[in-house]
Design a protein around this nucleic acid. Structure first.
Length: 581
RNA sequence: ACCCCGGUAGCUCAGUUGGAUAGAGCAUCGGAUUUCUAAUCCGACGGUCACAGGUUCGAGCCCUGUCCGGGGUGCCA
């Protein structure tokens, strides 16, 4: 029998599944199936055990036996490994599995001592390039840009945590059509002082003015295109202007990235690949993939039942697909990744299907995933720069911090000003991030201030509060029992809620793996909220410091392990955990 | 016209290979603080899982059709 700690790349459900699979194979050696479908899952209801296996029902047909007969046989004839207390059969053939209490307590004791809180080294050193954020360099970030950065950086952190070698790359939109419009705008309406103080706002302002001109003046767009062609062919004046735009925009991005806690290993915009675009098209032509059609160079994707993909426009310009193809070539050559993961909004699904299809035809073996998320919209409408109904990301974060600050001022008036500001930033920004991450990424998000800034209920601050209470409990313990050492006392799971808490803690590894591999941060937020709720109930209903010696230490120790898992989970979400809030 | 998503409690949303009685927050109502932080806890109320068929031991989840909403569909990204 496998010991649950033997293989570092397995989660607990992997181990349980493997054990159950062996049990089925032993019981039915001549069965016409390899039992690969036998898996163990967490139970939703404690009434049905800690984990359950539902395979007997599904296998009934293959084995030509009643499901209940199969389940009874497995339960009666399977040796129990050290981690298992008992198996029960229920209903039509459910196998309800109960973990051994002593084993469970032992696992929890060692959980916090390990590097990963029981999570496996699932990455095994595989290299993954993660492409997220990718802002347009001519506009300030608005609330709609939160998701790619937020979801992307959480998936990034989770993959690193699981032992993947991650290269996070910010593929800036710094070379597209918008620059012709922006250069024309800046030449005609630019304000050098405003450009210094808030560059992205100024770039956006001149972009909007210039864009409006295209409607009034039919030559305007042609002149914009000419400016772009000049830039792309190396005209010194336009290049200098572009470099200034980039320098100032990057400074502003750095500022907001620091605020959000987003970090990249590489920042390579589309411009980085500009000299490789012609060669990319040539390569497609040599491979017989790209052909001339209606004056443009295109790739037909009829086999994949996808629409045609344009790789070079009839005016000679290149577009997004070409840039992405050049980028993938560069990444493969330089990093040899096992997988490249792109995180963008849902509107780009077709683009990525086309782009991935071309990559397959070119023979790339690297795994390619497009993680798309639903657009953010306002209750009344979608927002757009042109409509003028955008909410700047900075403004959202400012509001979040000031709401948090108001509550702290009320609840902790004695807190020093500097700490109050730090905590307000942690709580406010944590609230904004959590509100976004706790939804299924693929859901369309309707933005409301109250939802984005929720400070109670299922919210980031609820988790931070649970963490801070534990820090406080442990401080009080040290004050009152300076000679005590909870970490060396055995963990005793006496009250039902304590065992429930232990069962939550031991799920952490499975949860992180599921969240990372399904690209769903909300799997982790759901878990952490459940953990914090279970802890809060424990906190409210069970005495720690007033408990008898021994039990007291066990409970304080359990608190510490909950705190460690909460902190690790919140770290993965990019949310800070102040010791006091 | 075609393609991709979505429709779950008054509101906002979860729902892990199809699994046992569909969950949470907010809102509403009732309770808990001489105590380890009440940003909390305990309880109540609240459902034709858009609609109609189908598949099977079992469907919110899979298949078909319809309605409604969002997005996309050769020279934006």
């Amino acid at each position: 029998m496998t010991d649950a700690k033997e293989d570092e790349s397995l989660t607990l459900t992997d181990t349980l599944s493997s054990w159950m699979r062996d049990a089925f194979r032993t019981a039915y050696p001549d069965a016409p199936t390899d039992f690969e479908e036998v898996v163990v899952v967490e139970t939703a209801n404690p009434e049905f055990g800690d984990y359950q296996c539902n395979a007997a029902m599904g296998l009934a047909r293959h084995l030509k036996l009643a499901p209940r007969v199969i389940a009874d046989h497995i339960a009666a004839h399977t040796d129990l490994p050290p981690f298992m207390a008992r198996i029960e059969v229920a209903g039509p053939g459910f196998l309800n599995l109960y973990l051994d209490d002593a084993w469970l307590a032992g696992q929890i004791e060692t959980l916090a001592a390990g590097e990963r809180m029981g999570a496996p080294a699932a990455g095994g050193g595989k290299t993954v390039v993660m492409d997220y954020g990718s802002p347009n360099m001519t506009k300030p970030l608005h609330i709609g840009h939160l998701r790619s950065h937020n979801i992307g950086s959480v998936l990034d952190r989770m993959h690193r945590f699981l032992g993947y070698h991650v290269i996070a790359d910010n593929h800036l939109g710094d070379w597209g059509t918008q620059f012709g419009v922006t250069i024309m705008g800046y030449r005609n309406f630019g304000d050098a002082a405003a450009m210094k103080s808030s560059p992205l706002e100024e770039l956006e302002r001149v972009y909007v003015l210039s864009y409006e001109q295209t409607k009034k003046d039919s030559d305007w767009m042609d002149r914009c295109r000419q400016e772009l062609v000049k830039l792309q062919s190396g005209d010194p004046e336009n290049t200098e202007m572009w470099e200034m735009f980039m320098r100032l925009s990057l400074e502003e991005l750095d500022r907001i990235y620091a605020r959000l806690g987003v970090h990249y290993d590489e920042i390579r915009g589309e411009s980085y690949y500009r000299d490789k675009l012609a060669g990319t098209v040539a390569r497609l032509e040599e491979a017989g993939l790209a052909v001339q059609s209606e004056g443009a160079t295109v790739v037909f994707l009829e086999e994949e039942k996808l629409p045609v993909c344009i790789v070079r426009k009839s005016d000679g310009g290149f577009n997004y697909a070409t840039s992405d193809l050049a980028t993938v070539a560069s990444r493969v050559e330089e990093h040899h990744p096992d997988r490249i993961i792109y995180i963008t909004d849902e509107r780009q699904q077709l683009h990525f299907k086309q782009f991935f299809a071309i990559c397959r035809r070119l023979g790339y073996e690297v795994g390619l995933d497009h993680v798309w998320f639903g657009l953010m919209r306002l209750p009344e409408a979608t927002f757009s720069t042109r409509e003028g109904n955008v909410i700047k990301l900075d403004a959202l974060l400012d509001e979040a911090e000031s709401r948090a600050q108001a509550i702290i001022a009320e609840s902790s008036p004695e807190m020093p000003e500097a700490e109050r500001k730090r905590v307000a930033a942690a709580v406010g920004i944590g609230a904004v991030k959590y509100a976004d991450l706790s939804q299924n990424p693929q859901s369309l998000v309707t933005f409301t201030w109250d939802k984005a800034l929720a400070l109670d209920g299922n919210s980031g601050p609820y988790l931070q509060y649970a963490y801070a209470r534990i820090a406080s409990v442990r401080d009080k313990y040290s004050e009152r029992f300076p000679d005590g050492s909870p970490e060396t006392e055995p963990l005793r799971l006496l009250e039902p809620i304590e065992r429930t808490l232990a069962l939550r803690l031991i799920r952490f590894g499975d949860v992180v793996v599921r969240a990372a591999h399904q690209y769903k941060p909300n799997v982790l937020t759901d878990y952490l909220y459940d953990l914090a709720q279970t802890y809060s109930s424990f906190y409210q209903n069970v005495p720690f410091l007033k408990a008898p010696e021994g039990i007291r230490e066990s409970r304080v120790r359990l608190c510490g392990i909950v705190a460690a898992v909460l902190k690790q989970g919140l770290d993965l979400l990019g949310i800070d955990t102040p010791a006091r809030i």
